[in-house]
Simulated assay, not measured.
Amino acid sequence: MDLFEHGGRDGRNIRCDFSANINPLGMPAGVLAALKDSLCRAVRYPEADSLSLREAIAGDWETKAENVVCTNGASELIYAAVRALQPAAGLLPAPTFSEYERAFLSAGCPVRYYPLKRDNGFRADEEFLAFLEKQEAGSLLFLCNPNNPTGSCTEPSLMERIVKLTAEKGIWLAVDEAFLAFSGEYRQRSMRRYFRDYGNLLILNAFTKLYAMPGLRLGYGICENREVIRRILLQLPAWNVSIPAQAAGLAALKEKTYVEETVAYVAREQAFLREGLVKVPRLVYRVYPPMANYIFLEGVSGLDRLLADKGIAIRSCENYRQLRTGDYRIAVRSRTENEALLRALMEEEAAWQKI
């Protein structure tokens, strides 16, 4: 597999796609209605700097629009931040989302890795602070929280020490919270309680996963250091966010009940999947505690191919740094799809028992 390959399978024989981590409730009705209404306005250029959307996001965060940047997906923000900050080095835990590394490499930036430990559930620990102590000022650390693909969260007490240490060392800290709303512990774990006090902190988020709109491409960043936002904006083309995407974002911010329903639904289906996965021990060896809308597991080699033959796609994670053949990620989907996945696993388990 390519190091930078992603999930999301569109093969003709795939009927259930667990390889992409999108909200199983689908796009909110209010967002869909706003999208349809926006199409007639697509004959004009969109707001060049997404000001209305930035103001709405700023209102939600109780800050100013000047502290917000909107991008064509969070991926555009990742690349723009690297170009804007021109870091002395890129700092990454491994495994993590591969686009961070790709952004560093595209800018000719050296990358240093901190290997997360399997026996610790791939969570950052005290030794991570020792790793940061050795890094030079002007470096840029990306932390995905919850991490992709392992679903592990860094403990809030450790995150507090990380933001303090990076500020003291003059290290930029970018925390990606694209999946955090699914955890049910957003307020306890989000870095939004720190952003006003630390000018080195950039918080990344996306509408993509939570509101089931990956095809629209909409992300945003928050930083109290307006010079950082100004430098990122200089890396972006005018009209980088379309009229439909801006309209969808404005509508999504009003979907408070939908978010609450999502958290409850994902929690129920996570528990349902985990209960079923432990019943197929010949295929699934270990299931890691999830903090997102996906579950990371260790299983038999070739499990993804066995399921693909049944029209079900899961994400093989062997192309991530520090991971190996037999590591997989499965998204939490609808009850019907989750039942189909578990039924397929049970059938394979039964077939293995006869061998």
Rank of each mutant, 00 (worst) to 15 (best):
L307G: 02
N23E: 11
A344D: 08
S38I: 05
I222L: 14
R41M: 07
A33T: 09
L173S: 05
C317W: 02
Q135M: 13
D10K: 11
R83G: 03
N67G: 03
R112Y: 11
E177H: 12
S316G: 15
R192A: 01
G11S: 13
Y114A: 04
Y186P: 04
S75T: 06
P156I: 02
E260S: 10
A351N: 11
E185F: 07
M1I: 10
L202D: 01
R118H: 11
A313E: 02
Y211L: 06
G7C: 05
F179Q: 05
A137H: 06
G138K: 01
L92T: 02
D17P: 05
F104T: 00
L116G: 04
P87V: 02
S183F: 00
A94C: 10
G170Y: 10
S19W: 00
P214Q: 05
S316N: 15
D60I: 15
Q353M: 12
E348S: 10
N13Q: 14
G215S: 14
M27R: 09
L3W: 13
L77N: 04
Y220L: 04
G184I: 01
A124M: 05
I355H: 15
Y100H: 09
P146K: 01
A80M: 04
R274L: 06
T166I: 04
K310V: 01
A313V: 03
F122R: 03
L323V: 02
R321C: 02
G276F: 00
P87N: 08
G59F: 14
L25A: 13
D17H: 13
L105F: 10
Q270D: 07
G302W: 11
S38T: 09
V300K: 14
R282I: 09
Y198E: 12
L303S: 03
C317D: 14
R83P: 03
W352V: 05
C317G: 08
F128I: 03
P146V: 00
S75W: 00
T257K: 13
L201A: 02
P24N: 11
Y258Q: 08
V278Q: 15
A245I: 01
L204R: 03
A48I: 06
L141V: 04
G30L: 02
I295E: 01
E101V: 03
S139K: 00
Y198R: 07
R189T: 04
D197W: 08
V175G: 00
D49T: 06
H6V: 08
E349D: 14
A89K: 04
R192H: 12
